[in-house]
Design a protein around this nucleic acid. Structure first.
Lengths: 397, 397
DNA sequence: TCTATTTCCGTTCAGGGTGAAAGTATTACC
DNA sequence: GGTAATACTTTCACCCTGAACGGAAATAGA
């Protein structure tokens, strides 16, 4: 423990408090963090000098006495970009340091590009979306449809967009962007988004399943992402609990549902349509999926005891009417369950907004925020009054 | 961050280092913890004054110069008792503060006693086993065959010894012992034992399944026990993946195996005997159990990505020849698996020794060890040269 | 036996950090 | 304009660390 350790810790505490509570007075910081006014003043002074914080006036004039000046993060000092690369669409959200979204875009994925070309295309798309803010770009976070090992940043198990497994993809992307690039599984980022801004806003421990072409999963324990070494944490789709010991993912995924409908001579293009259809021949298919889903939900409950399980991805909308029944059946199996089963509040933007959060964490870390304080930033109402629809407007590049 | 915070942190660091590295010189502490000699000296002085540490002479005289004096934990300053209460046997181990076992006992559980009587019986058994060391008894940890909620210390789901669910049991036990009593699930303690001294000694993340009358589980992440709120973390026996959506625990547990053998007209008394039998009619039963076990192992792998999965409990011995095959099949299902499947190294004493560790953690905490440093104490070779057989000698009380 | 050397241990001291309290600035109310 | 209330800043005593210094113990060698 060197001499400057307490200073760093207190700096992180103050910064975290400002980031989570928005514009706030020095006095309030001191009271709510148990730091002395002197310490708060000293640290705020440093942060102001560095340009990380700005003073805002505008305290309500309800009481007499000297007016408190409030400080807030210098939001415009930098921007970050969160990217959700899916098999069919790429979604981008650019946000400032206060996590206020500035621009959002959805662009069809050029799935036929090879790795280098895809990297260049994505880098140019990001640069174009960031636009004038490019000089202030702090960090880019990219969610990929595959398993990501953090310690060597390798990607595997990405059948829906195999190019991203090529190490060149990341290398070229980072090179062309000339800023740090964070990478993770898209489901992990989707969970991070819901954990900050969405359905898991108030949960300490949460699990998210994204049911798209495949079945993805993310796990958060004590408000922090829990990633294993190989990035397969929560992938209960591997459980050999299907008929003949097959994997559950073959049942509960877009591919699986479409295949099963085809077996009945009912070709669908879209798995969600299977659920919306009232064709009675599909009832066993739906029951089958529901049973598989129940096994996976049970696994999540006994594995992590989450407060909430969020379902996202393409067909989660179609499952919405069934959530209540799923919850009841879950509690029959595990009576002590406290987990609520909900659908994603951020819709298709969970992943991109979660990537924004990850990018912000990286940027905040460089500003001196300690790892432990990252779990509470940015503030969860940063999206209040934000038009999610406008952010996800589709643009044909 | 108040002024004495660094002092406390450094004290914890020094204490943890002495506890993990045994007798050690002040210089070595400084070098290996990056603390300055001055800081180490000051803190060691305080700890010596408090009687927590003792100076031992006897540095090897290999080098010349002033002999370094080594300090070690004052092992005899206190003792703890770890208790593993099972449906058929109670196992006790008394150890000193250096985790050296002093006495061990195994006594048949008087399963017909009601809660108050069982509490009195157990308290007296503990007092008797601790013997002359009673005045120095610091803490008792009791592992129970049921789910334990830590925040209100309630016990539920203990079909094999329902008395312990009665709140009076714990209350009376603690009152009669007049020391702090830690409680947890017996599988959690078994894992703690293996994690410190046994098969998971070198693992950061580990899972343990105890297959006895029922199926219990414990999970450790980053060398710390992961307990959910209601204590059912890792209980994948609840998965409704059996035939007709039944729970897996009904297949893979002593009760389940015996029932299935009975269905075939083969009454056994002991589930392990089913496995040792060469009767060809039992082959499907064994395959059935193995398939269920495989689902549970897969769930553990994708849930936590453990480095090792430890199997313990009555029939784990019988499963030993199958471990290799289980591991191979596991890697077929989840190729990225790094988990080794092993049987408990501490045998029947995992639980009692894990309880010793838990009791030591509580005692160490009162000595000033920070929560984060508990993950590495006591030292893993504390049992070296210790006769486990003698410790588990059965005594008819 | 006596001295030099080596290798530690313990202490002193400067520097940086915090919190309590005193001091200053700013505002509202009379 | 005076007074009270509130927000922030400065001062000061104290705590903690790390580097440097001096002391102590044991061996090696004469």
């Amino acid at each position: 423990m060197e001499a400057q350790a307490p200073r760093r810790a207190n700096r992180s505490t103050v910064l975290a408090h400002v980031l989570t509570h928005g514009p706030v007075t020095r006095t309030a910081i001191g009271q709510e963090t148990d730091l002395s006014p002197a310490t708060v003043s000293r640290i705020v002074e440093v942060l102001l000098d560095e340009g990380l914080l700005t003073e805002t006036d505008g305290t309500p004039t309800t009481t007499r006495g000297r007016r408190a000046t409030r400080v807030a993060i210098a939001a415009g000092r930098g921007v970050v970009c969160g990217v959700d690369v899916g098999g069919s669409n790429v979604r981008l959200v650019v946000a400032d340091l206060a996590a206020t979204p500035l621009v959002g875009r959805t662009v069809p994925t050029p799935a036929d590009y090879d790795a280098p070309r895809l990297a260049r295309w994505l880098a140019d798309l990001i640069r174009q979306t960031v636009g004038d803010n490019l000089a202030r770009l702090d960090c880019v976070a990219v969610g990929l449809p595959g398993a990501v090992r953090q310690h060597d940043r390798t990607v595997c198990n990405a059948p829906n967009l195999p190019q991203v497994e090529d190490p060149d993809f990341l290398r070229l992307l980072e090179k062309r962007l000339a800023v740090g690039v964070e990478v993770d599984n898209d489901s992990n980022y989707a969970l991070l988004g819901e954990l900050r801004f969405g359905a898991a806003r108030d949960a300490q421990t949460a699990v998210m399943f994204t049911i798209g072409a495949g079945l993805g999963a993310g796990v958060a324990i004590e408000r922090r992402l829990f990633r294993g070494r190989s990035g397969m944490v929560g992938e209960f789709g591997h459980l050999p609990a299907g008929p003949l010991g097959g994997a559950l993912e073959q049942i509960i995924s877009g591919h699986g549902i479409l295949a099963r409908a085809r077996d009945l001579g009912l070709p669908f293009d879209n798995a969600a349509d299977v659920f919306h259809s009232t064709d009675s021949r599909l009832v066993p298919v739906k029951q089958y999926v529901e049973q598989a889903l129940l096994i996976i939900l049970t696994a999540a409950v006994v594995a992590y005891e989450p407060e909430v399980i969020v379902l996202g991805g393409g067909i989660s909308h179609a499952l919405k009417p069934d959530l209540g029944r799923l919850g009841s059946r879950l509690r029959e199996i595990v009576p002590a369950t406290a987990a609520a089963v909900q659908s994603a509040e951020l819709g298709d933007l969970s992943g991109a907004l979660g990537a924004v959060v990850a990018a912000l964490h990286s940027a905040y870390g460089r500003l001196g925020l300690a790892e432990a304080d990252l779990a509470h930033v940015p503030q969860s109402d940063a999206l209040a009054g934000c038009d999610l629809g406008a952010l996800s407007a589709t643009v044909i590049a």
